[in-house]
Design a protein around this nucleic acid. Structure first.
Length: 541
RNA sequence: GCGCCCAUAGCUCAACUGGAUAGAGCAAUUGCCUUCUAAGCAAUAGGUUUCAGGUUCGAGUCCUGAUGGGCGUACCA
């Protein structure tokens, strides 16, 4: 419909002999009385045409040639809005065609042929995933699903580092618990990992290896811990319906020569120099105040170097777009990565960083600071034991990534009745309940007559359903899944009004038949939407 | 000090990226189950969008400054 409106508006604009035609912006007005679609075109033209907006609007409308089977009225309102109202026949035609689309309704091809990689979670294997990781995990996976619905081919990737100090301390922590468990002398490492899961891993080592590792160093413990923790993380992700296509080990960047290659390529461009025994990257050339160390005087790279090499590696793999999901604490690092990428001759526009604000955990009414090392955390598994995967995913997706999310553990746990996810699921379950009942009461023959749907609640629901592809598109473009949630709330709400105003069982069979068709496509929209969010659409509750 | 993000109903958050009368959910008050699921519906109340300026036909949204909060700002990841 928007395409059609753009077409006829453009045709009408020809009368003005404009040097450049403005972009035609169409939107669905908030207020029903303002029509079904609206454009601010006349206001935009006020300045270049040196005329008042309402007069221009009148000229545009006068020059407008439209099909009355599609548009029933065109009005000028307010400061110069042009408001369109859709014809009823158009509604029924359109409704018929989305019913035919069925499970595919909502899919678009705006990103068809694009290969997109999305990197998320990327927690190093030092402990179980906590609710702090939840937002990253669920956001990343849902953005991936949105991209898939707009036609892209998406790879989900988990980037990790199993070398370095963190992992050494992890190995030493397990080693200490192992010796302790066997009653030997042990020394718990400074800053070691204090969680119970470390003891569990130590016990597993005893079961598998007995006392054979008493004199070993920490490396076999690290390996065992890494393996056990990764298994645990994967289980947690699976419970949340998250499945990675690829795990990328930072170490492979060293083995594959990517690290050396980045440094030498930057050096060729004279963007790298040595000072104070360290290797520096001239980030000042890219507008930063200070240059950045790539390789410390100890010979060890800082994390920025592998980050740059990793992103170069991604682009070398031929992705059209790489999306990173970062917490606000990493916000300072990605400008360096982008500088590095552009310095190497890649297009930095192919890297898209989504920064989400921190989750504030509230426990017992108090803000709660989590630390994996100190074992102060609430794990995602614990949360899912309490509220399940649907509520967990919904909770993280409800709010804009750009805002701080307050996560009240107690509230989440008693979320049973209060959680808005149930509102969506309930509407879906209700429809299926009606369908089951209708199946017993009616047997239909002949074509569905959608033009029997004339009640306000019916047309309003129909118009809401039309907006589904746009809602997906908007959520995908902005990488903001909560927009889809807001939309689905509108759908559930419009359906509930319909449910109260328009009975299905007990009315004339022809009308019942058309209402059932409307109910079915509503259920389909709810189900498709919930599927994108990774949430189930139950048929009974 | 500097950079990024945020400030909207009592609480948690929306507002289609500059549009028309700022909306939901909790919490509060009041009605509604003998008819397809009351995990629901209807109604009432709740706001100078932190403050002060600016930009324009039009600002919660953009620019400047102030205040308050979060996160960064290392040869830590």
């Amino acid at each position: 419909m928007n395409d059609y409106l753009e077409e006829i508006l453009t045709a009408s604009l020809a009368q003005f002999e404009l040097e450049e035609t403005p972009e035609i912006h169409l939107e669905a007005p908030k207020v029903e009385s303002h029509g079904d679609a609206s454009t601010n075109l006349a206001m935009l033209l006020a300045k270049p045409l040196r005329n008042n907006p309402r007069a221009i609007a009148q000229q545009i409308v006068d020059g407008l040639k439209y099909d009355e089977a599609k548009i029933s009225s065109v009005e000028i309102a307010g400061p110069g809005f042009i408001n369109f109202r859709f014809a009823e026949d158009y509604l029924y035609d359109e409704l018929g065609s989305i019913i035919d689309l069925g499970t595919d309704f909502g899919k678009t091809e705006t990103q068809k042929g694009k290969k997109i990689q999305i990197e998320f979670v990327s927690a190093n294997p030092t402990g179980p995933l906590t609710v702090g990781h939840g937002r990253n995990a669920v956001l990343g996976d849902t953005v991936a699903r949105l991209m898939e619905w707009t036609g892209a081919e998406v790879d989900r990737e988990y980037y990790f580092n199993n070398a370095g100090r963190q992992m050494r301390v992890l190995g030493q922590s397990v080693q200490a618990r192992y010796l302790e468990e066997l009653g030997k002398d042990s020394e718990f490492p400074e800053g070691g990992y204090e969680g119970e899961y470390i003891k569990d891993i130590a016990k597993e080592v005893i079961e598998e290896q007995g006392e054979t590792l008493v004199d070993a160093d920490w490396t076999p413990f690290k390996e065992k811990a890494e393996q056990a923790i990764f298994k645990d993380i994967s289980n947690t992700l699976n419970r949340m319906k998250i499945h990675m296509d690829n795990h990328f080990n930072e170490h492979s960047l060293y083995d594959g020569g990517d690290i050396d290659s980045v440094v030498s390529r930057l050096r060729e461009k004279e963007l790298v120099y040595e000072a104070d025994g360290a290797t520096w990257f001239k980030t000042t050339e890219f507008g930063k105040e200070k240059d950045t160390v790539l390789i410390k005087s100890t010979g060890e790279p800082t994390y920025r170097l592998p980050d740059i090499a990793y992103h170069a590696n991604k682009l070398d793999r031929g992705y059209d777009l790489c999306i990173d999901i970062f917490g606000a604490d990493h916000i300072a690092t990605y400008p360096d990565v982008l500088s590095g990428i552009s310095a190497l001759g890649y297009n930095p526009d192919k890297i898209d960083v989504i920064v989400y604000q921190f989750v504030t955990i509230v426990k017992d009414g108090q803000p709660f600071k989590m630390s994996t090392r100190k074992a102060n955390f609430v794990t995602l598994d614990e949360l899912m034991d309490e509220v399940g995967s649907d509520v967990t995913r919904f909770f993280f997706l409800m709010r804009s990534p750009n805002t701080h999310l307050e996560f009240d553990i107690a509230q989440a746990k008693e979320a049973g009745e209060k959680n808005p996810v149930f509102y969506l699921q309930y509407a879906h379950a209700r429809i299926f309940s009606i369908l089951r009942k209708a199946d017993e009461e009616y047997s239909f023959d002949g074509e569905v007559q959608l033009n029997l749907l004339k009640e306000d609640a019916e047309t309003s629901l129909i118009k809401t359903l039309f907006k589904f592809p746009g809602a997906i598109q908007s959520a995908a473009d902005a990488r903001e899944p909560h927009r889809l949630i807001n939309y689905l709330n509108d759908v559930a709400s419009a359906f509930t009004t319909f449910y109260h105003d328009c009975r299905i069982i007990g009315v004339d069979p022809k009308l019942a038949q058309s209402r059932i068709a409307l109910a079915k496509i509503t259920a389909q929209v709810l189900k498709n939407g919930l599927t994108i969010l990774g949430i189930t659409a139950p048929e009974r509750m």
